[in-house]
Nucleic acid binder design. Structure first.
Lengths: 241, 241
DNA sequence: ACGATTTTGTTCTCTCGTTCACAAACTCCT
DNA sequence: AGGAGTTTGTGAACGAGAGAACAAAATCGT
């Protein structure tokens, strides 16, 4: 009853709207989605932010704040309706529609990706496999046949593909990337160990095994060193040169 | 030329020491390392922060700050000695020693990882492949033979493996993770779409295809929507191309 | 020898992300 | 109906990361 200026609270759906969900939040929504799906499969109807947070491995306050960017989908004193929230997140991410994906570079990794069932399970459909090696063109993988890099443009234009996956060696990555962008692909997932240059309008995410391992190695080394000599490690430095 | 109190600059090597390189910086060091290697292979002897930054796809101020956490390895007015800096970063990350890696889960992805040459190229050596499926045990992949999950403990203890890669289905991930931790593995790279619970002393990094695609899908959807109904900055976005 | 030029290392500032803490809103029990 | 107990949504404090800007330190030309 005090609450002097509490009447500004008319900022509803539209205004809170879809403009500007923080990038860090976007990156966590898929995790929440997975947690919700898992709960839903176990016939859980309602979940508190605490439940969800622990299933997703995050802090509950952060989860609540993340969800608040989407709208007010919870009920105080109760929690979140699992299926309703799941749908809302799926809609926000864009999983209510299907996305066509092309994979370029059918080596070890590209082949594994082509066979990966997790793609299709959510709304991602691999519509083409591309490789520059004539040896590989024509090879059949699952439902698809490997096409030549020369046909990339034609294929993309006929299928309206918006996501491209690059699984080529580093040397070929930028060229392939340019071609994908040229053909209108707006988002690229890059597995090649190379830095890609793209126009601002194109999104790139990279997945780099080697880098992940190196980060882990750094921490491992740190743990080991910490135990060995625990003052300053100038000893190690002194050995060099 | 005012500069009243500039005489505090006696904080040198020892004090700036290796304790506490920001996580964001650690994640970029491997990228710098790659850029340096590439330059070195082209016989470039010296590179400025600007050169390196553009090769790594980052801002030059950020690169300089990152490198300053390691020590003072540049020369003002000149730049960085490519090979020297490369060695310093490699040492900092821990690539001057070899790291043993075990891969658990030899499905599509696990097999691709086992064949991936990028592992060995830097100091990572795959010493064992593990799978729970008796069908797969005994299969030969490259130099290695797939071992049973039951033998995991024995293998790890005999080889002193510090990094484990999980490429199993989601359902098996936590169990495998527990076993790896139990056997003394300190760092885990998780490809399974699952949240892993581990003790604080263990580092986990996850690579999740499905999540990456969903993040891209979100941005794609946003671009599409932005063109349809415009307000705010959609104009700028629309202006591209 | 010295000023002009280059380029690093670092300080300052701003933005973004995370966590805390609590009022508001809901349920349940008596 | 009303009070006790839960749980959300969010304002505010806090911390980490990124970029701009500049003094310090090196080279080069004269």
């Amino acid at each position: 009853m005090v609450t002097a200026g509490s009447r500004k609270g008319s900022r509803s759906h539209v205004e809170r709207a879809e403009r500007g969900i923080p990038e860090a939040t976007v990156a966590r929504l898929p995790i929440y989605l997975r947690a919700l799906t898992s709960l839903g499969d176990r016939d859980v109807v309602t979940a508190s932010s605490e439940d969800l947070a622990s299933a997703a491995g995050v802090n509950s306050a952060m989860l609540r704040k993340d969800l608040s960017y989407l709208g007010t989908y919870g009920t105080r004193g109760v929690g979140y309706d699992v299926n309703y929230l799941r749908y809302q997140i799926a809609r926000e991410i864009g999983l209510t529609q299907d996305w066509s994906v092309v994979i370029v570079g059918i080596g070890n990794l590209g082949r594994a990706l082509a066979n990966y069932s997790g793609f299709a399970s959510r709304g991602f459909q691999v519509v083409a496999l591309i490789d520059s090696d004539p040896e590989r063109v024509g090879e059949r993988i699952g439902e698809l046949t490997v096409s030549s890099l020369d046909d990339l443009d034609a294929i993309l234009r006929s299928e309206s593909v918006s996501i491209g996956v690059i699984a080529t060696p580093a040397g070929a990555a930028q060229d392939v990337c340019d071609r994908l962008v040229e053909a209108g692909v707006g988002s690229i997932l890059n597995f090649a160990p190379a830095v890609l240059a793209v126009p601002d309008s194109v999104d790139v995410r990279k997945v780099d095994l080697s880098i992940e391992l190196q980060i882990l190695a750094y921490h491992e080394q740190r743990k080991a060193h910490g135990l060995a000599l625990l003052s300053d490690d100038t000893v190690a430095t002194a050995g060099v040169l």
